[in-house]
Amino acid sequence: MTHQLAAYTTSTGEAFQFWVLGTVAVIGALCTVFMKKAVHSALCLAGTMIVLAVFYLANGAYFLGVVQIVVYTGAIMMLFLFVVMLVGVTAADSLKETIKGQRWLALLCGLGFGILLVAGIGNAALTEFNGLGQANSGGNVEGLAALIFTDYVFAFELTGALLITAAVGAMVLTHRERTERAKTQRELAEQRVREGKHLPPLPAPGVYARHNAVDIAGLLPDGTPSELTVSKTLRDRGQVRDVSAEALSDLKALEQRAEDRLERTNSGKSGEASK
């Protein structure tokens, strides 16, 4: 295989591999951009990266190919998924453009940029392919190691420092030190009274539930649904079910059924009247 890589043109096998996997990579990239949900985007990106890892291997960069799979696809993309989970679903997931003209400008710039890049590559005199047979003769990892620990040793040391700094920085950014005592329940209640909003506890969801109690808003005394009773994520997704319209008729039917069950239609009424 090493000898084949040294050739000017590639083998048919590689060509086949390029066209198939290249198409997959491009589709993956496009999906990354246009998928509505961040989780899907992350998965598509992971696919593209795996394809790229294969291309690295095909180009004789065995070490990098493995690193690509282990580090990128394995570690970094998982990190992304964790953050997606942490952040949850937000309005940012909407693909609706809010800045006027931004999408058109972006597409125009992208198109122009791409054409220019392609033109640049086409113009460049890239006729000579030496192949990596010579360079990889002592083994790809050994070759890289020889370079890293000789010519690039300073850069290598610097990346070590960079990684430590990044780790410390991430900790500093995400770590919140509690600078004051946590409020007790009593204090929280007093604060609520002081602010004058929501004196009673928030209404619980699922009142008058019929299917999935969590997505149905509780009703206020006047029959209107309360937004506060459903979780924010559901509200953002627009998955709240409003029962206010059917609530009253349902209530009447429910009461009727209860009366029937208890067979005290008349006595109940007289009982109410006597009260």
Partner: peptide, 27 residues
């Protein structure tokens, strides 16, 4: 093998356009 470069250019452009279009910071 120049085709790898074309592929790289294409992916780069798609990525750049994505940066411009998407609003979700993670994407």
């Amino acid at each position: 093998p120049v085709n790898y470069l074309y592929l790289a250019a294409l992916l780069f452009t798609i990525g750049a356009t994505g940066v411009l279009i998407r609003r979700n910071a993670i994407v």
